[in-house]
């Protein structure tokens, strides 16, 4: 038994475990989003079932993180960057759980889509899935590398996602008007685009949380407040 312990070793061990859980959750969610998007593009029916099973694990992790966060706050009186880390972990886990739900919705839409007459290829759809998946990946990477710069870039990308959704809307409406048989298919794709947009918003949330974690600055809802903690932008 060494007496040379770093102070608050138990606390830091607990923080590490919390971080691990969040990373596990992030990995799963990134994966299911990818699977769901892929299912839409390839008209795959089986993804929905797989994703449903994985979603249980995500919910489990979210509840575990909630519990650990409460415990750490009550018992360890965290301060400064430890406090910000714990609070943002809580928020990010909530956002990740919702992302997983949206991914599940997308996969179910894909399943229903497979039973409808196929639509002509829509370039914007692939583009949107690509951007949203990249946003999620970048936001999570920014969290791991504690990079506020990278996180801010994610926030900027959100506008593009909104534009794409509006374009997709117009395209799908056109399809629906052109050919009655395409109605159900187009409606499902509409649903998919809405869920994708929500995932993009959630990725932006995560990015904003990362900026708070790193700089102590809040950049939500279009404003920037909070004390600057000068750190080199990385």
């Amino acid at each position: 038994m060494s007496d040379e312990r770093a102070p608050r070793r138990r606390f830091h061990d607990e923080l590490e475990v919390l971080q691990e859980r969040l990373m596990e959750m992030a990995g799963i969610v990134e994966q299911v989003i990818g699977e769901a998007c892929q299912a839409v593009l390839t008209r795959d029916k089986s993804a929905a079932e797989k994703i449903t099973a994985t979603d249980y694990r995500v919910d489990e992790l979210e509840m575990e993180i909630d519990e650990r966060v409460i415990e750490l706050l009550a018992l360890q009186q965290p301060m400064a960057s430890d406090l910000r880390q714990i609070v943002t972990t809580n928020k990010i886990s909530n956002d990740l759980e919702r992302m997983a739900d949206h991914a599940l919705n997308i996969s179910k839409a894909a399943r229903r889509l497979a039973d409808t007459p196929p639509l002509p290829e829509i370039r914007e759809l692939a583009e949107m899935t690509g951007i949203v998946r990249a946003m999620v990946a970048d936001a999570l990477a920014a969290h791991v590398s504690r990079s506020a710069g990278k996180a801010r870039m994610v926030c900027i990308t959100d506008d593009k996602v909104d534009d794409l959704r509006r374009s997709l809307f117009r395209i799908l409406v056109t399809h629906m008007l052109e050919d009655q048989k395409r109605l159900s298919g187009a409606l499902e794709l509409l649903l998919v685009s809405q869920n994708l947009e929500r995932i993009g918003d959630l990725a932006t949330n995560v990015a904003e949380d990362v900026v708070f974690l790193v700089e102590g600055r809040t950049i939500k809802h279009g404003v920037e407040i909070g004390g600057p903690r000068e750190r080199p932008a990385s």
């Binding site: 608050r8 606390f11 965290p78 301060m79 400064a80 004390g227």
Partner: peptide
């Protein structure tokens, strides 16, 4: 206590 500017302050309030 939430966002100190100096590294030494941060280290002290987080108990390091």
């Amino acid at each position: 206590f939430t966002n100190p500017r100096e590294d030494r302050t941060e280290a002290y309030v987080t108990g390091r």
